[in-house]
Design a protein around this nucleic acid. Structure first.
Length: 341
DNA sequence: CATCGACCTTT
DNA sequence: AAGGTCGAT
C-alpha cells in the first residue's frame, strides 16, 4: 500500500479544479524530464513539492484533483467552514482564481475571504499556468506549422482517445474514437449501424469497412455477431490454419499473408460447405481449436472412444450407428445455440 | 495484387 | 511473438 493519497480510496481528502486534459496532462508535463520534483506514486498520481508543501495530483477527464499533506507550518485553521460536499467534484466547475460571492445557507450573500483553498488554486494556476489557453495555442501553432500539427495530435487528441489509451486499447484507441466520430458526423448516428442489420451482407461489410481500423476480419465479425449475417465466416490466420489443416483448402496456398482475395475464398469455401449458418458452424470449430478448450476436447474424445467400444460390444453394428449420429448432430446444434445465442 | 513495417498490449 | 489494419512500396 502506498502511503500517498489515492483518489480511488475516496474523494474525502481531495479537492478539485475544473481542468480538462487538453489543457494539462500531468503525465506529460511532470514526466517529461523538465521538472524534477515529481514522482508517479500511484497510477496517474503524481506526488511532489510545490509552494513548500507536498502535494499529490491526479486528473480525470475534466477535473484536476489535488491532495495536500499536513505539515507543521501549515496547520489547518478552521476559518474554513464549508458545507459538506462543496469541495467535491460535484462542482468540478469552480471558476478559477476569481473572488466569488458565495450564498450562505441562510441566503445572505457573504464575501468569502481568500482561504487556503483559494491559495491552493492560485498556486496550481500559477505553477501550471492554467490561465493560458493551451488549446488555442495549439490551434494557432498547428495552423502555422503542419509539422507541429501532426506532432501535436499525439498530445491534444481528445479525452476519449486518451481515456481509451489509459484503459489499454493502445493504437486502437484512435480508431475507436475516429470511428465513433465518423458514425456521428458522417452517418447521422447509431441509426446508421442499426440500419445495416437489414442490409445485404456485402453492403453492410463495405459500409463497416469505411470506418478506420475496420478491415475484412473485424467487419465480418460485426456482421456475424451483431448484424444477423449468419452465413459470414470471419477469416483470421487461425481460421486459415483450420481450413488448410483440416479441410485441405488450397486457398492462398502460395500466399504469405491473408490478402483480401484469400479472405473471400476461404469464406466462400466454408459457406459452400456449411450453408446459410456457416458463421455459427465456424464458431464451433474456432472454439474447439482454442488452447483453453483443448482439454475439454481430449476428454470428450476419450469418452466418445469408450462409448463406441461399448456400443460395438453390446450391439453388433446395424441401425445403432445412425442413432448415434443423430444424437451427435443434436448435440452440435445445442452447442452452437449456446455459443451464439 | 501482394508484401512489409509500424502500431501497442498481452502472453 | 502474436494479433488485424493501415500506408507505403
Amino acid at each position: 500500500m502506498s502511503q500517498h493519497a489515492l483518489l480511488s480510496a475516496g474523494t474525502k481528502s481531495w479537492r478539485s479544479l475544473a481542468c480538462s486534459r487538453s489543457e494539462l496532462r500531468l503525465d506529460l508535463t511532470l514526466g517529461c524530464g523538465q521538472s524534477f520534483r515529481w514522482r508517479e506514486t500511484g497510477d496517474g498520481h503524481w506526488t511532489g513539492v510545490m509552494g513548500g508543501r507536498v502535494w499529490t495530483l491526479t486528473q480525470t477527464d475534466d477535473t484536476l484533483w489535488y491532495h495536500t499533506y499536513n505539515s507543521p507550518n501549515t496547520i489547518r485553521g478552521d476559518g474554513r467552514k464549508r458545507r459538506a460536499g462543496s469541495l467535491l467534484q460535484g462542482s468540478g466547475k469552480r471558476s478559477k482564481g476569481v473572488i466569488e460571492v458565495k450564498e450562505e445557507e441562510e441566503g445572505e450573500p457573504v464575501a468569502v475571504t481568500p482561504d487556503p483553498d483559494r491559495k491552493e488554486e492560485e498556486l496550481l494556476n500559477d505553477y501550471f499556468q492554467l490561465k493560458v489557453k493551451l488549446g488555442d495555442l495549439y490551434r494557432d501553432w498547428g495552423a502555422a506549422d503542419p509539422h507541429f500539427n501532426s506532432i501535436a495530435k499525439i498530445f491534444t487528441d481528445n479525452s476519449v482517445e486518451a481515456r481509451l489509451r489509459d484503459l489499454g486499447f493502445g493504437y486502437r484507441a484512435r480508431f475507436l474514437q475516429q470511428s465513433a466520430r465518423q458514425i456521428l458526423d458522417s452517418h447521422g448516428g447509431p441509426h446508421w449501424l442499426q440500419g445495416l442489420r437489414s442490409a445485404p451482407y456485402l453492403q453492410a461489410r463495405d459500409a463497416l469497412r469505411t470506418l478506420p481500423g475496420v478491415g475484412p476480419k473485424v467487419a465480418d465479425c460485426v456482421c456475424l455477431m451483431s448484424l444477423e449475417k449468419a452465413c459470414v465466416v470471419p477469416v483470421d490466420t487461425h481460421v486459415w490454419q483450420i481450413a488448410k489443416r483440416d479441410y485441405s483448402c488450397a486457398a492462398g496456398n502460395g500466399q504469405k499473408s491473408l490478402t483480401d482475395k484469400v479472405h473471400r475464398q476461404i469464406g466462400d469455401f466454408f459457406r459452400q460447405l456449411w450453408g446459410p449458418y456457416a458463421g455459427w458452424a465456424h464458431s464451433v470449430l474456432f472454439c474447439s481449436d482454442l488452447k483453453k478448450f483443448q482439454k475439454l476436447k481430449e476428454t470428450h474424445c476419450l469418452k466418445q472412444e469408450e462409448e463406441k467400444k461399448k456400443v460395438k460390444i453390446k450391439v453388433e453394428g446395424e441401425g445403432m450407428t445412425k442413432k448415434i449420429k443423430k444424437m451427435c448432430n443434436r448435440k452440435v446444434k445445442m452447442c452452437v445455440k449456446e455459443e451464439v445465442g
